[in-house]
Design a protein around this nucleic acid. Structure first.
Lengths: 329, 329
DNA sequence: ACGGGCTCTGTAACCGGTTACATGACGCAC
DNA sequence: GTGCGTCATGTAACCGGTTACAGAGCCCGT
């Protein structure tokens, strides 16, 4: 026997579907008598409303689509946690889609959301805003997180990479370090680009040496960068990795090579994933969950109205043992 | 101007909606002429099909609902990652719902899924299977993960806590430890219960002392348990925490108290979250992502057919430095 | 020339809800 | 008793797709 529909309930309660609908949605003008019979029928039939059908006629789904790239572990859970917190507080569900491939894949993923969600949060640091904007279903309110080339076509939240990086460089300079190394993330990634560029600028401004090594945001690439530096005989007294994952890889390799951290080499990461605290890794705190929460809150509050312009999400330097003061002088 | 519908496309291409639908779904018996005109109209109107409406008439949503409790960080992301991997490989989306409250809240969360998803994965270690089964919409294929009191009413996957715990105790005994402590998880949680019970049984079997401290799966409770033991003057040479979070809290407190790990006290956790590897924490590897992947794969493969019975997910002991051999003897 | 089969197309019903509008019953004031 | 307002209810259209069924046009064999 297939699932009961509202018409089955109506038949059993000997009323019309309109009355059932009104009763179930708590609308007035339904007699107590009818209400009781409907409640009985619902119970007897085990009726559960069909949310899909409801969404269709209401043109409202109570769901928000979330499209994320392949994120390194903790970043993913933190941002989803933040969104979920806000979403469930406001009675929304999250429809999750991962962006594995390139722009064509993105088109499919975004279009699949149309008619399923009331709004969309898209994080695509490897795609241009043009690509994303072109793929977005027209009438779907959307917020972009950390997408490059802001054309202001959609409301967006950007992480203030520049401020974070400047704080790191200032901190390292204050520690007396003069030979800085940056381990960068993948070149297509907008955050990686911004961090590398801000690093170069800040180093120039403070008048310290700087070298940039190529990484890919994954842990092994941090270790590989250290290997390459040591093999090349390059001298350095501070390493700033574009994310914590790579910093952790670098940390293990540095210690494995007999270098003392922070005495010989100071080390700072970016993101402040939970692991960082446990390892004593200095880093830039992004408050990832808060970022997700904020994106969702903004999207929900803008559902009716118009919304535009960018917002900056400000990070904050957290000094721990891998770059504590009082070492070299 | 509202979003274009299939009827708008049909009008513009001067064909019927049936032809448009056939063309867009790649069904045969559509002339090249019609196909072209439809493609043009789609492009000109920026038409994107309405997935919700499609689901309604197909009675198929290509989405899977995932209902999880409040999970400690890494566990959450790992299990969702595994599910997402499998889901996107098979063209499904994930609809996420967190289970914050108790049984009544669960009813609402589960019912909200009806008509939105083709199947459901429910993880509710704090609820009984009766409660969950009662809340599940009747016609919705579902898989339960780690829900208590298997009544076999629904297919389920259970983590083999007993096997994992026995391996831990055997390992500790082999290290020569004789005074074991277990830091348990919240009493309502079925995994916590099973682990505590298995611990008691295994300790009895091996003839070693055992004490059970109450924790709540969060990190501070691990530290608190150590404090309580030390304050009470209790002697022990091994600690087994019911999850890695608490083990980490315990580790920091042990070291902070001047005890050597593993020399004075061996320490083992449960789950093998990524952090465990970095801290050298011995633990029981659950392969969380694989668990999620497996649940999803099983659900999808069972969508047409019937499916029943339980499956066990086997964990595996991972020995690292917090319980390495060669210390005490 | 005709019937049969094939391809292409359109009409309209259907999926399961919501709701505008119409209707009927009732109470109340005159 | 009539007229009006209010409340409870039902009918049917609608949301935006899919698809069964019917029909039109064409080719082909006999």
């Amino acid at each position: 026997m297939p699932d009961a529909t509202i018409r089955d309930v109506a038949r059993r309660a000997q009323v019309s579907v309109a009355t059932v609908s009104r009763a179930l949605n708590g609308i007035e003008h339904v007699s107590d008598h009818a209400r009781e019979r409907i409640a009985d029928a619902v119970k007897e039939l085990g009726y559960v409303p069909h949310a899909g059908a409801r969404s269709l006629s209401l043109a409202r789904t109570n769901a928000i689509g979330v499209v994320l790239p392949d994120l390194h572990g903790e970043f993913f859970s933190e941002i989803v946690r933040g969104m979920d917190r806000e979403a469930s507080a406001q009675g929304y569900l999250l429809l999750l889609s991962n962006l594995h491939g390139g722009a064509e894949q993105a088109v499919l993923a975004l279009r699949a959301m149309r008619g399923r969600v009331d709004g969309l949060i898209v994080m695509a640091p490897h795609l241009s805003e043009q690509d994303v904007a072109a793929a977005l279903p027209a009438g779907l309110p959307s917020i972009l997180i950390n997408t490059r080339d802001a054309t202001r076509s959609h409301p967006a939240i950007h992480l203030d990479n520049k401020a974070g990086v400047r704080a790191v460089v200032a901190h390292l300079v204050e520690l007396g370090r003069t030979q800085l190394v940056h381990i960068a993330g993948p070149p297509q990634n907008i955050d990686a680009q911004e961090r590398a560029e801000a690093f170069r600028d800040a180093a120039a401004e403070y008048g310290v040496e700087c070298v940039i090594m190529q990484g890919d945001f994954e842990e092994p690439s941090g270790a590989a960068a250290i290997d390459a530096l040591l093999d090349g005989g390059h001298r350095f007294d501070a390493v700033f990795a574009a994310n914590d994952n790579m910093a952790i890889g670098a940390l293990e390799r540095l210690q494995g090579s007999g270098l003392r951290v922070p005495d010989d080499v100071a080390l700072v990461g970016f993101d402040d994933i939970p692991l960082a605290r446990h390892l004593g890794l200095s880093t830039v705190r992004v408050r990832i969950a808060e970022l997700g929460e904020r994106a969702l809150a903004r999207l929900l509050s803008s559902l009716g109205k118009e919304d535009g312009g960018d917002e900056l999400h400000a990070p904050e330097l957290v000094v721990r043992t891998t770059s504590s003061a009082g070492a070299i002088q």
